[in-house]
Nucleic acid binder design. Structure first.
Length: 204
DNA sequence: CGGCCGATTATCT
DNA sequence: GATAATCGGCCGG
């Protein structure tokens, strides 16, 4: 158990990795303490031709990590205040990443709530890419962090698979002016919060 | 619960 | 100078 996802896991198109990340456990080590949640929502950003992807304009200083080796974090800043956590997919030269959009809390409750004191415990308090990044303490320090090293302080572990009947697939969120068909391509995967409540997990 | 709106700044044109 | 892979507060139902 607690198996670290390998470099090979990420070395595939984001559209394959994103649904496979549902049910996996996102872990951040904070002063050696495990703070984690089960990934329950993801989005794929795949290739230079994907007009919804940061990399569609070509390589820039910000999006460069997406062009680099798989199995690393791509963390970027947006809206003047929010950090977004992505996992880089595919080999060098092909920009691809999965945005992690929601987690179900599992370990490190005290730290999670300390990082989001106003919202802690409220409905949806970890549902949203900026919310979970804040709760886990993920910011620019983690850009390009290796998710596959045993030394890593940010990584993802294999979890129990979720039946496809429990997974909703939709178009991606927040792409605003992105033209069709990219706006409505079903590259967002969501497992209901309620699914994990039924599992009766020992939330610590 | 759903919709509107202001916040706030790195990044790119 | 405009925009952004968003959020939280406030409002009405």
């Amino acid at each position: 158990m607690n198996v670290l996802l390998s470099r090979d896991f990420y070395n595939r198109p984001a559209t394959e990795v994103a649904p496979d990340l549902l049910g996996c456990r996102l872990v951040c080590l904070i002063n050696g303490v495990r703070v984690s949640g089960i990934i329950r929502e993801t989005e794929a950003y795949q290739g230079i031709e994907d007009l919804g992807c940061h990399a569609h304009v070509g390589k820039t200083p910000r999006n460069a990590p997406m062009f680099e080796a798989p199995g690393h974090a791509y963390v970027y800043f947006t809206y003047g205040m929010h950090w977004m956590l992505n996992t880089v997919c595919e080999g060098e030269g092909v920009p691809a990443a999965v945005l992690i959009r929601a987690i179900y809390p599992l370990e490190g409750w005290e730290i999670l709530t300390r990082n989001r004191p106003r919202q802690a415990g409220k409905r949806g308090w970890l549902d949203g890419p900026a919310k979970l990044a804040q709760a886990l303490g993920v910011d620019k320090r983690f850009n390009r962090h290796d998710l596959c090293s045993p030394e890593s302080e940010l990584f993802i572990e294999r979890g129990s698979s979720i039946p496809s009947s429990e997974i909703e697939v939709t178009g991606r969120i927040g792409l605003g002016k992105t033209p069709e068909p990219w706006f409505s391509i079903p590259w967002r995967w969501v497992a209901a919060h309620e699914h994990f409540e039924k599992l009766n997990l020992p939330s610590v």
